[in-house]
Structures are given as structure tokens and as C-alpha cells.
Design a protein around this nucleic acid. Structure first.
Lengths: 183, 183
DNA sequence: CCATGTGAAGATCTTCACAGCG
DNA sequence: CGCTGTGAAGATCTTCACATGG
């Protein structure tokens, strides 16, 4: 059993919010007690779509791509990187964390054959748009993009961009504001 | 000169929002024409705090850390990674992208001496909290955290966490919702 | 009595309509 | 006339107060 206040401490989200969010999907807490942990986990898995197993591909096996492939944090999650792609023949054929690197020319047919819905882009900025287009043409509808550009994709495609420079700009902005008002 | 609608196309943010946001900081557009580009850039640099030059340190030179060190996207930006730290002696002394890797035991004094305000954490999850504490004790007040945990820091410290698993969960959730409502 | 679930109040963010100015 | 700047309307998110039920 766990209460909304305990969850609050663990996550940094306040207890009102925790309750509102959970209640939004139904009543699975017990009044006066809290939420049954195991039950909560299972219900959330269903809600987040993580009871299903999602297969993912990654394109671009440079430093960042390799870092992500080595990252073990996926293991217990609902998604699996089942293939990586690069145009560089020196990388093709490698296996990283048991994930094989294929030539990028096979990407589209791979997506179609395996019915992939999610792709990760870790290629340089100038190649990213083209990669995104091939992904979409193969049937991918959700992209996690690490290239520092705005990808042009059809509306039905969900693009989630992580641009490290922008994240640092956020911090810089925060510090500037604070410094300014510290007088 | 550039108009709010052009900026809208470039960024994906709608034109109302562009104007509201810019107007919030003052009137630097010309009615009937648009925004003078150079002027806009300079003004925004000031607002974002990027007219100043910010020095940054990074801790953890594993795959991800190395990828970020190699990333050239900072070059034109307002921030500079001026040092990296690791506890692994095989990494100490390396130079990556002209950034030297120091033993982590010198981190605190480095932060203090150079008056660093921003730190990037790319160490494994179990080491991240400790690293954050040392950073804060040295005077850092803004952290970009790549470790998949919730860092406990004093309120005056701005923590920005990027957890790749969570970003993927977002996409999975989006796809689940869509699949559900596609019936 | 305790912690959830929820309607209402409050705060904030987004969209809109249009006045104002080059 | 065109595009900005802005007050107001609308939508959404957050906080709160408290009724509800184990």
C-alpha cells in the first residue's frame, strides 16, 4: 500500500496532482488507506500501453546512438530496440548490447515487415529530415528525435525532440532570471 | 525581416503564441512588416541570458557523456563545457573535443575556483544523487540530469532531468491512446 | 480517523478578435 | 493594407476544501 503523499515525496509531484491524475483513470485507491501497489502498477501499465511490448528501431550509431544502445534502462520496460541502422559500412554488422546494426537501405522494409511504430533518430542534423521521411513512409508514427532541428512530419506522426542545447538554454534562462531578481 | 507566421512555420509554434511570447518582453516588431531579424536575435540573446558566456562541467564520461562531449552543437551557443570528471582512472587525463577529463575528487574545488553554476550529470543512476550533492555543495545551482532518478536537491537548485525511458513511454502512451480511439 | 475522489476556486496558458501603427 | 501588440474569451492545469467510505 502507498499513499498519495508518499508518492508525492518519491516523485516530486504534489499529492493533489497525484490523486487527480490517478482518479482520472478510475478509482483504484482505498479510502483511508492508499493505493495497493501491485494493483497500481498493473493498472498503470495498461494505461501507459506498456502491457503490450513495443518494438523500436534506432537510426544513427554514432556516439549518442551507441550510448543509447548500451543503456540498459529499457530492459524492464515495455519497449525493445530490435534493430539499429547506419549508412556507415564500418558500423554495419556490429552488435551492441545484442542489437544488430544494419545498413540503412534496409530500414524501410524492416519497419514494414516487423510493423514497427516507434523510431529513434540519432543521426546528424542534416540527415535527420530524410531519415524521418523514410521512417514515416514505412509506417512509423512516433519518433524520438535527438537531432537539433524541427522535423517536418505529417500531423498523425508524434515527434518528440530532445535537443541538449535547448535544455541547457533552459537552465541558462533560469539562472539569468534568478541573477536578475537577486538584486 | 521575419513575420510571426514565418517563425511559426519554422518552429511549429502558432503565430498567436509567437507574438504573445515576444511581446511579453517588449515591443520589438514593426507593425505591418514583422521583426527585424538581427535585432530579434540580439534581444533574445539578452533575454535568454546567452549574451553572457556560461561555463559548464560534466560528470561521467561513459558512452553518453562522451557523446555529449563530442557534440559540436554548443560551439555557437552561449555555453562551454570547460571540464569533465570521472572516477575511473582510465578515463582521467583523456581529452575529448579539447575538453580534459579530471579525477572526480577535484570537482568541488574546480566548481568553486571557476565559479561554475551549471553541471551535467551522465553517471549511472546509483551515483547520481551523490554527484548532485557535491555539485550543489560547490555552488552549482542548475543541473541537467541524464540519470533516470529523481534528484533530491534544495529548492534553489534547478534540476532538469532527461530520462530516455520516460520519453519513450510518452510515445507509447500516445500510440496506445490513438490505437484505442481508432476503432 | 485517514486518505481518497471530486466539485469548485484559482492560476495559467492558448486562442481569438481587433485596434493601432508603419 | 499587413502584421504587430493586447485585452478578452476560452481552455486547461493546479490547488483547495471537503464529502465519502473503508
Amino acid at each position: 500500500m502507498i499513499s498519495s503523499s508518499e508518492l508525492s515525496k518519491l516523485t516530486g509531484v504534489n499529492h493533489y496532482q497525484i490523486r487527480k491524475d490517478l482518479a482520472y483513470f478510475g478509482e483504484f485507491g482505498k479510502r483511508g488507506v492508499g493505493y495497493p501497489i501491485q494493483n497500481l502498477i498493473n493498472t498503470l501499465k495498461g494505461i501507459l500501453g506498456s502491457s503490450k511490448r513495443w518494438e523500436i528501431i534506432m537510426v544513427g550509431v554514432g556516439n549518442l546512438g551507441e550510448a543509447l544502445l548500451r543503456y540498459r534502462g529499457y530492459q524492464k520496460r515495455s519497449f525493445n530496440i530490435i534493430g539499429a541502422f547506419d549508412k556507415d559500412s564500418s558500423k554495419v554488422g556490429k552488435r551492441i548490447n545484442n542489437i544488430e546494426v544494419y545498413n540503412i537501405q534496409y530500414m524501410k522494409s524492416f519497419i514494414m515487415k516487423k510493423n514497427i511504430r516507434i523510431g529513434i533518430i540519432t543521426v546528424p542534423a542534416q540527415a535527420a529530415q530524410k531519415v524521418a521521411e523514410i521512417m514515416v513512409s514505412g509506417g512509423i508514427t512516433a519518433i524520438l528525435n535527438f537531432a537539433p532541428i524541427v522535423l517536418k512530419c505529417p500531423d498523425f506522426v508524434k515527434v518528440n525532440t530532445i535537443d541538449i542545447s535547448i535544455e541547457l538554454d533552459r537552465l541558462v534562462y533560469y539562472l539569468s532570471i534568478k541573477t536578475h531578481s537577486d538584486n
